[in-house]
């Protein structure tokens, strides 16, 4: 875990140490990438610096001002949990939008590959695709509505004044379903004919599925960590 000292303008070592401790505790509760965490820390550090300056301007000593500033911000664990909840919702929306956008692309890639390999019309290959990975029908039934809820649920929930945790759960569910779907499609190739034309036709579809698989695993893991951090 990196150390935080984001207020170089203030020379009082005790004040800087107190604020650094606060930021350290806040950061410990935020399972984010280095860059995303640094952004949150910079904003909170600026707020703490403003509070510190306001108390000094009101006549407090630096030591008293930093105590007041930290007390004003509240318990860092509560703040990190509240931030994790909101950042988790933003992640959920991005996951939902990403899956909604890439779902048709993956579907078209696989159907097109099946059609090219067999030399038949694409619409006759939808059944072949489902037969190659029978679980895919269930995956679609779960992932499509879950991704739509995650993509739109956050904005609707905020605008209607509702809790938005549903969007995070929907994003996690959609991620898990898509991972299962991609694994099922790729592993289904073990039973596919092994002639070179067939392999070449599927290479593109497999690549797209593997890229989505790795991105979804990372994003789904992040949203689950944020969900846990939000308590």
């Amino acid at each position: 875990m990196e150390a935080f000292d984001l207020i170089p303008a203030h020379g009082d070592p005790q004040a800087r140490a107190t604020i650094a401790d606060y930021l350290q505790e806040l950061a410990a509760g935020l399972p984010l990438s280095h860059r995303a965490r640094a952004e949150v820390m910079a904003e909170i550090a600026d707020g703490l610096a403003c509070a510190f300056e306001a108390h000094v301007a009101a006549g407090a000593t630096p030591a008293a001002a930093v105590r007041l500033a930290v007390a004003e911000f509240g318990d860092p664990r509560e703040l990190s949990a509240a931030l994790a909840a909101e950042i988790g919702r933003a992640h959920a929306r991005r996951i939902g939008a990403g899956l909604v956008a890439t779902g048709p692309l993956v579907g078209v890639a696989w159907i097109g590959a099946f059609a090219q390999a067999t030399g038949t019309a694409w619409w006759t290959q939808i059944g072949a695709l489902m037969a190659s990975a029978p679980i895919y029908a269930l995956v679609l039934a779960v992932s499509v509505p879950a991704a739509l809820v995650a993509a739109s649920g956050v904005r609707l929930a905020v605008r209607l004044g509702l809790g938005a945790r549903t969007a995070v759960d929907a994003a996690a569910l959609a991620s898990v379903a898509c991972v299962i779907g991609d694994v099922a499609l790729v592993s289904g190739l073990a039973f596919a004919p092994s002639d070179p034309a067939w392999s070449a036709a599927l290479a593109c579809a497999v690549s797209i599925s593997l890229v989505r698989l790795s991105v979804t695993v990372g994003a789904g893991r992040r949203v689950l960590l944020l969900r846990a951090a939000a308590r």
Partner: peptide, 29 residues
Amino acid sequence: PTGTVYPALRRLETAGLVASTWEKGDGRQ
């Protein structure tokens, strides 16, 4: 508590109701 404003601003930004920009000055962002 001052901390309560930051999660609320994140929520509003996710909902598309506010937009944020970063500025640099006085040695901090």
